[in-house]
Design a protein around this nucleic acid. Sequence first.
RNA 1: GGGCGAUUAGCUCAGUUGGUUAGAGCAUCUGAUUUACAUUCAGAGGGUCGAGGGUUCGAGUCCUUCAUUGCCCACCA
Length: 878
Amino acid sequence: MKDLPTRYIPQEVEDKWCQHWEKNNLFHAQHDKKKKPYSIVIPPPNVTGILHMGHALNNTLQDIIIRYKRMKGFETLWMPGTDHAGIATQNVVEKQLAKENKTRHDISREDFLEKLWAWKKQYGDTIIHQLKKLGSSCDWERTRFTMDEGYSKAVKTVFVKLYKKGLIYRGQYIINWCPRCHTALSDEEAEHQDVQGSLYHIQYPFKNNPDQRVTVATTRPETMLGDTAVAVNPKDKRYKKLIGQTLVLPLMNREIKIIADDFVDPEFGTGAVKITPAHDPNDFEMGKRHNLEFINILNADATLNENTKEFNGLDRFKARKLIVEKLKEQNLLVKADEHQHAVGHCYRCHTVIEPYLSKQWFVKMRPLAKPALDVVKKGKVKFYPDRWTKVYVNWMEGIRDWCISRQIWWGHRIPVWYCKACGEENFIVAEETPTCCPKCKGNDLHQDEDVLDTWFSSWLWPFATLGWPEKKEDLKYFYPTNSLFTAPEIIFFWVARMIMAGLEFMGDIPFSDVYLHGTVRDAKGRKMSKSLGNALDPLEIIEEYGADALRFSLIINSGQDLFISKEKFEVGRNFANKIWNASRLVFMNTSNLNVAQLDQDFKNLKKEDLPMSCQWILSKMQTTLIDLEDAIEKYKFSEAENLVYNFIWKNFCDWYLEMIKNSFNQKDVQITTLFILEQVLKMIHPFMPFVSEEIWHSIHPESDSLAKESWPKINKALINNSIESDMVNVFDLIVSVRNVRAQWRIQSSTRIDCILGAPSKILKILEQNSKIIKSLASVDNLKFDSSKISMKDTAAGISGKIKFYIPLSGIVDIKQEKKKINEQILQSQKALTGLSSRLKNKNFLSKAPKKVVEKETERLKEIEEKIKELTNIIKDLS
RNA sequence: GGGCGAUUAGCUCAGUUGGUUAGAGCAUCUGAUUUACAUUCAGAGGGUCGAGGGUUCGAGUCCUUCAUUGCCCACCA
């Protein structure tokens, strides 16, 4: 074992281990039939991405469980990869083009894609490198990309399969249109934000009597240019008579009818609604019901088009202003109320979305949703925490069809071809590019210009990464995967759709457990974001505190949402250093041991002959292990870290190492201590892989990696409840009687500073626990001489190596002590009366379980005793 | 508008199926130190568990109403 520096310096060791793990391919998964598989697929970060705190949290969680399972003997696979992230990535490259004052339309599709691939090649692996710095134990050799060759094949196969099954269709519908990205978006990609707008009340004159008018209310007055009707509720008395009459649409001078539809809410606005079938989803439905004309008034960039006469070419918001002004001039604007309403924004560029009529591809979701709903309801797929189940169920029950076509270039091109001769409606859906039209045999074919929604590839992730549609060994061995770790924001985008795809194409769930973690926020509770400038960069934290510190601190703070500030990472840094120094202490005292034989030597030890402190820590370790495994299996990670933290810091360092410091010359103590240190390193490894690996290698330079060692086995024979409770008594000895402030210390074990009670109390406790004290200090012939202890003395000697002193005088104010103790007596007496009356209560005695009654009775006795003791102390003091 | 959470010490949170005297970390204060570790150790103060009502021998925990707050979903023009 080599000497370790006095401080743990993560910067000096982390890169070394990253490289070591990767170079030796230590996390490469095999298909070991003797082992059980355990697999996780990474939520693929976008190729545009750089590591943020959310990633750090997400991947630490996965790494903890995968390292734990690996050590537990599972054949583990953590599948890494990245997502092409259609719109997001395209936007980045478009911004680059914009610097040259170009749009993608100024260069060819091929050239644009070439730029994107070049960009992906250059920056696409950044995040992978950063994940490695975090310590992620992915199988890097298997790294996938949602647009690599095999994956593209899977996407095409899925499209064709769904089409043949009748689950994909093409049609003209109102979709969410982003005028900046120039593409359709799915409903999930439209983010609704409350916006303070105006509700304009506009008058439409009657054709026959221009002085008589109907007032309609709208938040988007420019859409009136596309109005083809005004609707009222048929039961609305105000308008009943007017149904069927003709109005003249202002500015456009188009004649439109008043129609009746149940959808109209008489309570809202004026009770009369202008109908714009081409620019509002409800109006669209109504337009179909009433056979109205669909007038498109917008271009793709949301400027007004030639259907708007004088407004042609105007931006939609400028047009809005102008139209309001013109209506004012014509005295047709009644009023504009302040009005808060939800407006859809593009989830990528935050531009206001327009409902837009266009021809798009859709997936029929109901048939896919049903089985996916069943597996969750039956508990085959479980959500952690459980409350997300409801969110999932609600969404699935109200699911709507999925618009999957996007008018961008970066992505999987839709595998559909149109024949010029046969027309648009006779399209060909095929995995391979067709050579000629199957109908007319003509070969003037062109592929659909659109690409697929990025999530149309992501939803195949759990099996497409394993080689599907080919049925290779990977797929057989590792599917279904075990757990998925992700943020709740993408339950609908991704999790739900993966469950649907898994069931549809694999006939089985993609994973059985879904763990949804919280959002990382700053100390004030705001979401961390670049634009707010409150984001902490995980790489900076790694640089300053170390990856282990980052990992540990994140997880220990992760209950629900995490509130993180820089200082929080000190916990992790300090803990790593604590483990480091504890190891140094152990190394200093165990350098003569033969580590190769350590396990055997420990086995051969007669545990019952070990000092009590050793027996205690061994027992404590078993109970900690039991709780720890339970916590990890239940995905209670912060609880798990707390258990390890307390065991290592409080039990192992503060108590155990202090207690055995003076017994390190005993070989059995050495063996036990080093053995426990090794177990400790294993226990901490999933949480803090770097520091544990570094220390492990100081002991075992020959070992491949701690990551490949086996997890400590729980040895129930080592659990010794009586010793654990005895030790609690010893600790109590220090804690329980802290009324009189006398300090003593066992000098031979140097640093146990204790607060004890009055001399008689001290003696009593020491006598009661002399066996234990003896074991602790390994001192023979321990005797207590009460005659040498008195209130006035500052110290009292004791035979043997143990000495203790009681610097009472000058520290203790007898009057105050008396007062305090009297207060305590009063309190205890109160508790006593309460308790005894309770124990006389017939209802309590008959209804409460026996155990409780017994406990309460015991407690009654304890309190009585306590009062006696306290009274004695009072006597002592006077 | 609908749904789901949250409310416990100055701050951040634990608190298992109701059962001793409601816990921890941070912060604050007091003290220790020839030290494996000042990134250390010991101790103290600080809580009518958001409010009211109910069930119960017994409620932080179960029910109900209200308040405050967060998140998700939603086509009221």
